[in-house]
Amino acid sequence: MSALEMPSSGTEEVAEDSLARPQRSVDRLLAGNAWLVFAFLYLPILVLAVYSFNDNDRVGVWGGASTRWYGEMFTNARVMDALWTSITVAVVSTVIATVLGTAAALSMERYRYRGQRTFDGLLYLPVIIPDITMAVMLLLFFVQAFDLIFVATGVQLSRGVGTITLAHVAFNISFVALVVRARLSGLDGALEEAAADLYASRWQAFRRVTLPLIAPGVAGGALLALTLSLDDVVIAEFVSGAGSTTLPVYVFGALRRGVTPLINAVSVLMLGGSILLVLLSLMVSRRRDQQ
């Protein structure tokens, strides 16, 4: 019997090997494609980072490694002003958008009222509207609003840090609401009902039960809003005024005069900040999923 079984065993091994070869070829092809995609996405970033340490004044000519341009960046008054403007706008707009976006998510997920579907559709419009369209809309809104305020009160307002902050709040609310609402949809409403049965008011139930449970979602939405605010250039370009240039707008304007190693250093700084915020957001999301 064993002598009869040996050929069949060898045949099965040959058959399995013949089936595994095409699969291994497909795996190699997919792996190669993945590496090509990663190279296409990240090699330009690597080149940018390397040439930000170029000692030569000309971007495309390597003159040796140096941190000269990073030193000039931190001593450049215009760059530092733009950086602090970006940070101020991002922090203030993120705080406001996080509060309003969380409230909007709660109203959509926990309550039912007339016109809710309409509000739901309007809330997510900034997510799908092109940046240039929203920038023009906000510019027209501020111009018309300032004209009405001047006619009514005689006070002449102008575009600046305040208008940039309000514009960033306007589109960040939707992104925060999306993230927080996703967290709320997986939250058991019976926990809030149990808090009410224990004579907790709505505010106490929210503060002691709901908010701690949705805190990772709120933090993730806030980090997303902060990232979007720091990276925005189109909307900030339209609604900004004299003396209120953000860092992305400064870089965009400087590129019109040509790329310099200083712009490379500023771009690397912005890239590093964005990567850090994305990593923090991923860490918060992973912690949220584990809870």
Rank of each mutant, 00 (worst) to 15 (best):
D55H: 10
L230T: 10
T227C: 02
Y113C: 00
R68S: 06
A265Y: 00
T98K: 06
T94W: 09
T85H: 11
R208A: 07
S107L: 15
G154C: 12
M73V: 06
T133Q: 05
V14A: 14
V79S: 11
Y124L: 11
E5M: 13
G272F: 07
A34N: 11
S18R: 13
A20P: 00
T163K: 03
G32S: 12
V251L: 14
V284T: 07
S18T: 05
I128K: 06
A205T: 12
A222R: 02
L157P: 02
V233R: 01
Y51T: 06
F53W: 08
N264R: 01
S201A: 06
A31M: 13
I132D: 05
G241M: 06
V26S: 11
R202F: 05
R181W: 02
G189N: 12
D131G: 13
T246F: 01
V79N: 02
F252L: 09
A167C: 09
G63V: 04
T11S: 08
E109M: 13
V26L: 15
L48F: 04
A103H: 05
A82M: 04
A20R: 14
I214R: 03
V59K: 00
T11R: 14
I263L: 06
V233H: 01
T67N: 04
A222L: 03
I263H: 00
G154Q: 07
T245H: 05
S158C: 02
P212S: 10
I128Y: 08
R183D: 12
G71I: 05
A200V: 01
A265D: 01
